[in-house]
Design a protein around this nucleic acid. Sequence first.
DNA 1: GAGTAAATTGCAATCGTTTGCGAAATTTAT
DNA 2: ATAAATTTCGCAAACGATTGCAATTTACTC
Lengths: 340, 340
Amino acid sequence: MVSETKLTLAKLAELAGVSTSTASRALKDNPLIKKETRSKIQALAKQHNFSINTAASRLRTQKTHVIAVILNLVDNTEQSTTDPFLLKLVGELNQALNASGYELLLSNSFMASDDWANYFIRSQRADGILVIGQGKSTDKIDLAAQSAVPLVVWGDAKTNAPYPIVGGNNFEGGYRATEHLLSQGARRILFLGDSEHAEMSERYKGYRQAHVDSGTDVDPGCNCAIDITSAAAYAYINERIKQSGLDFDGIVCVSDMVALGALKALKERYVGIPGDVGIVGYDDISIAELMHPSLTTIRQNTQQAAKLMVIELLNQLENRPTHNQVVETSLIVRRSTRHE
Amino acid sequence: MVSETKLTLAKLAELAGVSTSTASRALKDNPLIKKETRSKIQALAKQHNFSINTAASRLRTQKTHVIAVILNLVDNTEQSTTDPFLLKLVGELNQALNASGYELLLSNSFMASDDWANYFIRSQRADGILVIGQGKSTDKIDLAAQSAVPLVVWGDAKTNAPYPIVGGNNFEGGYRATEHLLSQGARRILFLGDSEHAEMSERYKGYRQAHVDSGTDVDPGCNCAIDITSAAAYAYINERIKQSGLDFDGIVCVSDMVALGALKALKERYVGIPGDVGIVGYDDISIAELMHPSLTTIRQNTQQAAKLMVIELLNQLENRPTHNQVVETSLIVRRSTRHE
DNA sequence: GAGTAAATTGCAATCGTTTGCGAAATTTAT
DNA sequence: ATAAATTTCGCAAACGATTGCAATTTACTC
């Protein structure tokens, strides 16, 4: 149990009375080695708490079994690292990666290097990259993709790109949210978000289509571009009401955090919810159902999302064809819209 | 710009017309090398998108510049990976580590191996370990510590352990929360959490002390052991009221998520907040101020926490003495307790 | 211009594992 | 018993960067 000196494969082999080659093969259960020899060495390894030096192994095999996960946020003013949805996705990715024998190296886009291919792949820090968020600009992503780096992005799956994108059905999500509000009687519905984002713009399209399908006019003045944070939403709603009064009766929000900010502003002004204004969020973070009123929202299956992203990444690592993937998206109706 | 063949340090050196040794030294700005040579090689490296192979480098230097961060959660029923506070801490740790030139390898405690020293350190996956959460049992932590692994734990800093612990002032947090409720007139205050946790038990001690100091009796029936999730809190409050009616007028919660669960249960039963029951949370997650009523809570400075954890870890890596550290803990008064 | 000190650079070993290929041991066939 | 075919194992060359030490070049002194 005492670790006298660093235990290497060579020493382990010596203990077992075999060569390092057999020891190496035995540890990976290579059938080239006699069964008894294998189990003997494996037992010895366990007994001595041996574990292979990954640095050496990676150098030799040119594989790291590490995947870099990058939170691709433009800067602090935007949807931030504190958004529970993004972090939940990270957690799910960790699970999914572990299940496939990979580890997760976490990074955000404020790192030193903007050249992901170089920094992560050429340097053998990781075998592939998972990017969370297309952001407003896909420059860095495109740059990395040019280097033929194994890469999967969480974003809008309708976007055509040289890399696979996994995402929710944003058009449908926007449509369902809007349709639901319209069916509850709303007539002037704000779209609170930022339609410059690929994902968000798809949702906005769904928002418009829902209006068209129900024969309701779309007022461009209802498309409100804000940072994707609760603070920005809070400020915007306050300001809008101050300027033009309560000129709306529904809000489609681009994330639950945004919805919470809006909700707070409305409640402080004693606007009835859903009586005066109905609100729909997006993501179904855990807090959504704890709100008062509980928040109607669009749920995206993050666990499925993580699994799909990992699958597509493995496809690339093993030279199989890849495809964009759409994850389940469903409307969860709660009190913030349900008139009773 | 086209990458014909894998660019190694040797090839780069050849391009520059020097040996690999000089190239290596030049890239790390070693003053042993003439200034012009240095900048020439650095320029060449930039131009060719060169980046050092970390696998080789780690093997040679025996340093990885990677730190493993372990979310130490007993299982799914407990405070889970979705708790915004924990995830926020992860984000802050990432920032702090990057600032010191380290990268963050994310893991949770559901991984294959329970032997962290082996899995992360001996295998050269990482140079050190940051553990988030003491949990109910410190078995795995102690095991790792026995192997003299560089290790820092987020937990209760009052605990005496063979490894440095960074944590909030839990006693004071519990005290301040309770004292505040008492000052608002509460007389029967629930402690909603799990006093088997080291951190939580300190808070409970503070809770008791506040009672003593104000001359109020402590009813053991007010110490409510639940899983640290909003769902458990919700269920508990519901059940308690069903069983014994509203036999309390204040709640000290062990996390904001727990507080949100309790809040929801109370609101559904039309219990006035803070009129009938005042609630104090813990952590000050971003949603706390968006709640209605906004949530009074104990803030722990996560950014400072992350920095301290990294400092203590570096101390170990560089053989300096280490100490337990306490991060700022303050009471944020909001509407869930403030009578007006 | 010789001699010494200082500034630069290169040689070659090393980190620990993996793996193609050949050698030895064992089994099967003749 | 011997040859042939299998099994089972070990040799030795990578993988790419780092670094103590020695070698070379340059600068300086008298």
